[in-house]
Amino acid sequence: MKPKIDIDYVCALAHLQLTEEEKSQIAPQLKKIVEWVNRLEELDINASKGEVYSTVSFSAPFRKDDVQPSLLEEDVLTNAPEKAHEFIKVPKVIEEK
């Protein structure tokens, strides 16, 4: 597969903004990496059996859904960049037209 990496589109998805200079550096690097990982196409993946997405070799146990103590409000807010009373403050969410 010959992928086309639209660097602006991928940046927008990832919420990152690159300068033109960064783009001209990172875009070819990404292209090279993607070409390099393309070698997976050589493999016969149909030989792969079993669960594709399972990451654990054991069955993860269920637990009772008991309420446990959680972090105190002040602990949660200690790292907030900006706060007002018991809330985290952010710039305006709704953009004006």
Binding site: H15, V76, N79, A80, P81, I88, V90, K92, E95
Partner: peptide, 19 residues
């Protein structure tokens, strides 16, 4: 930049701050 860590403070909108 919302709940913890570095936040860029010169942003007018939420999305701009995020990026």
């Amino acid at each position: 930049g919302v709940r913890y860590g570095y936040r860029q403070t010169n942003s007018q909108t939420f999305k701009e701050m995020y990026v």
